[in-house]
Simulated scan of single mutants.
Amino acid sequence: MTEDTHAQVRERPRGETVSIGELSRRTGVPVRTIRFYCDSGVLRYQRSSAGHRIFDSPAAIDRLLLVRRLRALGLSLTAIVPVLEGSASLGDAVAAERAALDTELDTLRWRRAALLAVESAPVAQRPQRLELLAAVHDRGAVLDTVVDFWRPILAPLPREQFDGFIEMTLPPLPSEPDPRQVVAYAELTTLATDTQVQTAMAQQIWRSDHAGIRDRHHLLTALPAAYEVVAPLVTANETPRPGAELDQFVHAHATARRERDTPQFRRRLLDGATDDDPRLRRYWRSTAEITGPEPTLGAIYYWLIDALRVTA
């Protein structure tokens, strides 16, 4: 049915009725589909004296054409009915469908990258890679797992700063994720569900004598400033060394413990630390695969610890 024909239909006087067959002919919608729409409450109709369905011609045609066009774009009847009833605008319905499609596309891209990650792995490693990736088929669950991992470690941190930390260490995947990034997410998820890794990470962040910290909030708010001044040195591949950057890091720990920065204190920051735990290094390497060229918190942390070893 052309737009000109549609315009002619609109010009017909109100009150004209058509049979279901005529309605099908004018709109191109099969009779069986029209019956389904009637039974679903999408189309209004009356019964003739002979018991046949009859429809108000202008209203029924306009309504049925709108349904057909929206269905062609993939909208469900559940989304279409509010538009027909006037409780939702056409723009809102289309925007909601587009948003749902974006989510679906993100899911498909994640699955595609995961399949490529298995396909590109050496033959002998494919079963292990498949097992790893099967555990993270839901990308939303990955974020929840990592949040649950860090929340008790950074417990004193205010909500806004905690969210900023998560965003920095686990940014959203790009629209076209690389298979290596999906594998990195899977690695992080596996590590984040290990309570021993969580304990080791807490010890790395708070250092070995974390029980003696009197002001955790101060430490967690002071450390980011120390990390910020070290980041350019890591980016430039500067060799870890003593200096103002390390002093700022140590001072944050000393202040939080109500102690002075002394050689003995610096040695204590290294005693019993978990920095060489291979699982923590895997965690930060996986994070680096996701964050890209920017230095990760782990890279900054290891630079500071290596500089601390020089002085201690």
Rank of each mutant, 00 (worst) to 15 (best):
R258T: 06
H253S: 02
G243A: 11
D215C: 02
V250S: 09
V250N: 06
E259R: 15
R216T: 11
D215Q: 09
A226N: 11
P240D: 12
R260S: 15
R260D: 15
D271K: 12
P240V: 06
L269F: 10
V250T: 13
T239Y: 10
P242C: 01
V230K: 01
Q264H: 10
P242E: 07
D271G: 08
D247W: 00
H253R: 00
V229N: 04
H251D: 15
R257W: 05
D261P: 09
R241W: 14
D247K: 04
H251P: 00
Y227D: 11
P232H: 09
R258A: 15
A231W: 04
T274M: 10
L219Q: 11
R279V: 00
L220T: 11
T255M: 09
P240T: 09
L269A: 02
A273H: 11
H251S: 09
A236W: 05
T262S: 15
G243P: 02
V229A: 02
R257T: 08
V230P: 01
D247E: 14
T255A: 11
V250Q: 05
G243W: 12
R214C: 10
T221L: 04
Q264M: 08
A231T: 10
F265T: 05
V250L: 08
L270S: 11
D277P: 02
P224G: 13
D215V: 05
L219P: 05
T239V: 07
L219C: 06
R257G: 01
F265M: 04
E228F: 03
P232W: 07
A231Y: 03
H217E: 14
D247P: 00
F265R: 06
D215Y: 05
A226R: 02
R267H: 14
P232F: 01
T255K: 12
E259V: 04
R267L: 08
A236R: 06
E245T: 03
A226S: 14
L233M: 13
